[in-house]
Amino acid sequence: MATGGRRGAAAAPLLVAVAALLLGAAGHLYPGEVCPGMDIRNNLTRLHELENCSVIEGHLQILLMFKTRPEDFRDLSFPKLIMITDYLLLFRVYGLESLKDLFPNLTVIRGSRLFFNYALVIFEMVHLKELGLYNLMNITRGSVRIEKNNELCYLATIDWSRILDSVEDNYIVLNKDDNEECGDICPGTAKGKTNCPATVINGQFVERCWTHSHCQKVCPTICKSHGCTAEGLCCHSECLGNCSQPDDPTKCVACRNFYLDGRCVETCPPPYYHFQDWRCVNFSFCQDLHHKCKNSRRQGCHQYVIHNNKCIPECPSGYTMNSSNLLCTPCLGPCPKVCHLLEGEKTIDSVTSAQELRGCTVINGSLIINIRGGNNLAAELEANLGLIEEISGYLKIRRSYALVSLSFFRKLRLIRGETLEIGNYSFYALDNQNLRQLWDWSKHNLTITQGKLFFHYNPKLCLSEIHKMEEVSGTKGRQERNDIALKTNGDQASCENELLKFSYIRTSFDKI
């Protein structure tokens, strides 16, 4: 039985969820670079991206490699990797027998973001014989899940209580170790020597080791999670996991709180800001991140802002960003909400898709409305799209047979046209069989910064309504002859009103 693990408890099935942008060198404390989270699957090609990484700022997932063999891993080693800020997950990587050479110096898994409450997941690794993470000293947050690894031993010899604050939620089941077939031998045991430290858990006094050649490092209890030197002297209180010299914040392997210019500090002093819960960055760093993602459509890219001495992905609820200094300031009234469309555009074809934009005031991208039916549609669209004030790209209304009016965009005031449909149009209306009105132009103002209007096959939309939009939106004169079809717009509506004058002759039985 794995020490510190839980057996036999019912657990939810383990679901495996399925960018080499360097964020800056980590400095003297770390020998390499800070790398983003990685999802490495199918083959070993991307694994080489770990070569210079000291910190993975995010998670590391290595999974679904069915053609790899043990010899493929023999020359692979990433000794610079010290810390993973989120979680480490391995799933069905064939041929991998140990992690001792792959990650010989991995010391800390912070667990800032977890995989279903777990910071370390080893699942269905069919050839893994031992973990071998002999320098792993601290899992700051989260638990361990090690399950269905039929060859995995050296679990009962690990004292997880020396690595985690609590072992109650560890789930370590259905491994070879369960069948008591392992016969784990710690260093020196074969020669009758006791080389590794022994600890007591559940009444068992057991030597602690990761492999037959690597003991588990056990520091004096007084050192807590700070770690200790090879001689057993406690590291500085700002260290986490390990250090090369005692009581020196510049000799830590990793930091308990924050890293700044080669030393570990309790908090980031001005003019620095907390970033990702582990390091200090200056304003320029946060500003660069903001600008890199301002026009990016890459998933996970955030326009970072500053709030409460932190550089964070977005302002919290009730705050909006001051564009001059990136500071989050309290909103006066309802907060603006910028919604970034991942692929640059979004099609609204149902109430469900409209709900995804609920509360958005600025759309960074283009909207395509293609709704053919739905219950209580006008009210639903207004509830979900009615706060949109600005669209950076274009607005396209296409084959939306259920629409009679666009009044559900009740606050839309600006279409920038930074991206144009077919390279020309910022407003595009095609084949809307029941569209009769755009907006009530006596109450609604709309500016279209650039781009043209396109109207074709809107049989109940009168040309007068379209011409009014040209005047109000500032697009009059931009359109070419064929942009607004004269014969297919309003051709099934009563669009022309003329005053009919009647004269009559009164007659009676005795007068003409």
Rank of each mutant, 00 (worst) to 15 (best):
L155A: 07
I139R: 01
C196V: 13
I40S: 00
F205Q: 10
D159M: 04
I56V: 06
I122S: 04
H307Q: 06
L29M: 10
G183D: 15
G262W: 02
S323R: 04
S98L: 01
C53E: 00
G58S: 00
C331N: 10
W210A: 06
G192F: 15
T320Y: 08
K148V: 06
K67L: 06
L120V: 08
L96R: 01
P271L: 06
V305N: 04
R279T: 03
I109A: 00
P334R: 14
S284I: 03
D75P: 07
S98R: 02
D178K: 08
Q276I: 05
P104S: 01
H274T: 14
T85Q: 11
C219Q: 01
G58E: 00
C182R: 08
H302Q: 14
R41A: 14
E97L: 05
F123G: 12
P313T: 08
S143P: 10
H59L: 01
S161M: 08
K292L: 12
D72K: 13
N105W: 02
V173S: 08
I185L: 07
L240G: 07
C153Q: 08
Q204H: 11
P70L: 11
V144R: 01
I185T: 10
G262P: 02
N42A: 07
N195P: 08
R110F: 04
K129W: 04
T45Q: 07
Q61K: 14
E124A: 04
E314C: 03
I82L: 08
N309T: 09
D177H: 15
C219H: 08
I312R: 13
L102Q: 01
E124T: 02
E124Q: 08
D159F: 00
Q204M: 09
Q204C: 02
W278M: 01
K80Y: 04
D288A: 12
L96C: 10
Y30L: 14
T329K: 03
G262R: 04
Y319L: 03
H59G: 08
K80A: 09
L44R: 07
L164V: 15
V144F: 02
K129I: 07
E207T: 12
C243Y: 00
F66W: 14
L155E: 09
I158Y: 07
C35E: 00
T107V: 06
C209H: 04
N309Y: 09
T189Y: 04
E147M: 10
N257G: 03
C280G: 01
G227P: 12
C235T: 00
G203L: 09
L155T: 14
M83G: 02
V144A: 04
E130M: 14
N308M: 08
V55P: 00
C286V: 07
P336L: 07
C301S: 06
C255I: 01
K129G: 04
T194C: 02
H214G: 14
E181T: 09
T329M: 10
C268P: 00
E57Q: 11
R208S: 14
W160P: 01
S317D: 07
N42V: 07
L50D: 00
L88F: 09
K80M: 09
F285I: 03
R298G: 12
E51L: 06
C186L: 05
G241F: 03
C315K: 01
K191P: 08
N325K: 03
A230T: 05
I163A: 01
M83D: 02
N43Q: 11
Q204L: 09
F116V: 03
N52P: 14
N257E: 05
N42I: 05
H236Y: 03
C219S: 03
Y319S: 06
I62E: 00
Y273P: 02
Q61V: 06
E124H: 13
C215V: 11
T320R: 08
N242F: 08
P270Y: 10
L233P: 03
T250L: 10
C328A: 03
T157A: 10
P187R: 03
L152C: 15
E49T: 14
Q204W: 03
F116T: 07
L260I: 13
I122Y: 00
W160A: 02
G32A: 08
C215A: 09
C234Y: 15
P31H: 01
G58W: 00
K310Y: 07
I146K: 00
S237F: 13
P31I: 09
I139V: 08
S112Y: 06
Q299R: 13
I40V: 15
D159S: 10
L96T: 01
N179P: 07
N175G: 11
Y134E: 06
E266K: 15
L155P: 05
C228Y: 03
R74D: 06
T250N: 09
E130G: 05
Q204R: 08
D75V: 14
G300M: 06
N150A: 04
A190I: 06
V55F: 03
V167A: 11
P79T: 06
L136Q: 05
S324E: 05
L102C: 02
H302P: 06
T189S: 10
A119P: 01
Q299M: 06
V305E: 02
C209A: 08
C293V: 04
T68M: 13
W210R: 07
Y134L: 08
G58N: 00
L240N: 13
L89V: 00
P336Y: 07
T68S: 10
S161Q: 13
N117K: 06
F283I: 13
